[in-house]
Design a protein around this nucleic acid. Sequence first.
DNA 1: CTGAAAGCGCTAACAA
DNA 2: TTGTTAGCGCTTTCAG
Lengths: 339, 339
Amino acid sequence: MTTDAHRSLTLRDVSEASGVSEMTVSRVLRNRGDVSEATRQKVLQAAKELGYVPNKIAGALASQRVNLVAVIIPSLSNMVFPEVLSGISEVLESTDLQPVVGVTDYMPEKEEKVLYEMLSWRPSGVIIAGLEHTDAARAMLRAAGIPVVEIMDVDGRPVDAAVGISHRRAGREMANAILKAGYRRIGFLGTKMPLDHRARKRFEGFTEALAKGGVQVEDQEFYSGGSALAKGREMTEAMLARSPDLDFLYYSNDMIGAGGLLYLLDQGIDVPGQIGLAGFNGVELLQGLPRKLASMDACRRESGRRAAEIITARVNNEDVESFVELSPTIAFGDTLKRR
Amino acid sequence: MTTDAHRSLTLRDVSEASGVSEMTVSRVLRNRGDVSEATRQKVLQAAKELGYVPNKIAGALASQRVNLVAVIIPSLSNMVFPEVLSGISEVLESTDLQPVVGVTDYMPEKEEKVLYEMLSWRPSGVIIAGLEHTDAARAMLRAAGIPVVEIMDVDGRPVDAAVGISHRRAGREMANAILKAGYRRIGFLGTKMPLDHRARKRFEGFTEALAKGGVQVEDQEFYSGGSALAKGREMTEAMLARSPDLDFLYYSNDMIGAGGLLYLLDQGIDVPGQIGLAGFNGVELLQGLPRKLASMDACRRESGRRAAEIITARVNNEDVESFVELSPTIAFGDTLKRR
DNA sequence: CTGAAAGCGCTAACAA
DNA sequence: TTGTTAGCGCTTTCAG
């Protein structure tokens, strides 16, 4: 029992305890090079007894290698990004790379800051949501000299690589399915998020395709904050009070869509006969509602997976396709007539 | 335009570009010590033009200081942990500490591995979910010589500090409320998770308090995987088919409880008259269901906040209470008769 | 207010 | 198979 102020154990401590040089200890602990089994055991034994935990800071500085992949996403509080993360983890788990997550809350300046912090740890790669970043952020990404994969969107020019769906196209396809099903008086309900570029692009694609069919969005409403399910209810009620003739409601995400669905069922309204509904994301969570909401899968897990694959390939100097557009499919569910 | 292999910029580059010594450049970039305004500007200018991003690895090694707090949690895919994280972030944002998240998937060996990885970066503190860890993990935590806060549970002996609720007590209190409301034939539905110690403790407290009232759980059912809402439905249907006389269903989490609620409403069963329901977690997400499910707040955000406060205090050598039991309150909602 | 020297704990490269 | 040497890029410390 000592009264020393706390000091972490070093290779030197293990070296002394085992009577083996620091260099050889280092080799054993990293499974590098040839080490005799006897030495190996001595070292392992000593390290274990002391409870030695290597110092990656020193290791990284010396080797100029950091096994971290920076993952930068807007939020953890909806189902979408955690699922992307698990796709990333799945792939990285079989490598020696580790994801480190940073959250931006959809704020460009915060994204810039988080990115700066993460890059200062010299990660081996970056996976970042979206194609819209500040000029400074883009400059940092380029200057970092590491693989950068922008995910969840392909409508724009990536700094380096990109994996995701086209939200514009997703909006168009949903609009076309709605028109094809015969709906004509359409309302839109979404988040009040000027900075959610993907939601914006979906909306743009949506209105564009409607316009081609000679239809315009008749009413729209936006919310921010609060429980999405409850908001979906409120907004739907408000919109139908204002525009009782609507025959379709398109929601920018499944949670508010589910709220709307529950409201309409409560009111005894015929879905999808009198009013059709659709959301976005293909949230599995919602399986189990009285009706299955029409939606569109955003290929979240797959995006994560592919992005991680690109990073690992690049880190190993292998060739990979660096622009991957994934194809979401419409799930008609029980709230959008099939034609 | 050069064809050099990529090399990160260093202080030396900034030093040369600005004609100021490395040491002074370092001072400027860290806002340390006195530097003349003129020099300061020269340095800042040069750093910006070059796009210099400091190398924290080298900085951390030299200063023996790492502004990272390791946060280790079982999962990101239910609402509970993201909310803890946001409590932590809220507090750390006003300091120079940064959370780094690791996920264990409720697996002790993975927890051990994640912990090892994180400790090898020499963080300033650890926040880790739960009080149950492998011996090796506990040893590492003790040996790290940094503040360690175990959160989300206080039923046990922490390595260092603890913040959370007593799940045993939470189970007891819910049982008592149920008995007080007059229910007697009680079913339990939960996750098949031997490693979710908090769910287990709740169940233990629950049965213990029921027993004191001379009541036993009449039927129980466990699930794993799949959409919680859908599972809640299925399990409820199965249980009521088997045990039609039950008058109360206690769910180990709100999502399956919500599934059960939707099922019962579909069936036109009188809730909470014929059957009462309760879940656990106080998930805000579910506001907006036709009825509000009875539940119990797990003080998630508050746990995160308090844990972060303990870490920051300790890092600054301030005194803090290191054992904090939070008090969850029952929300009766519309599915548990009030007495 | 500014700079020079020493070294943080580890690993690359080379020598034995 | 093992050991030695020289840094990695920064900050601490001390001297101007």
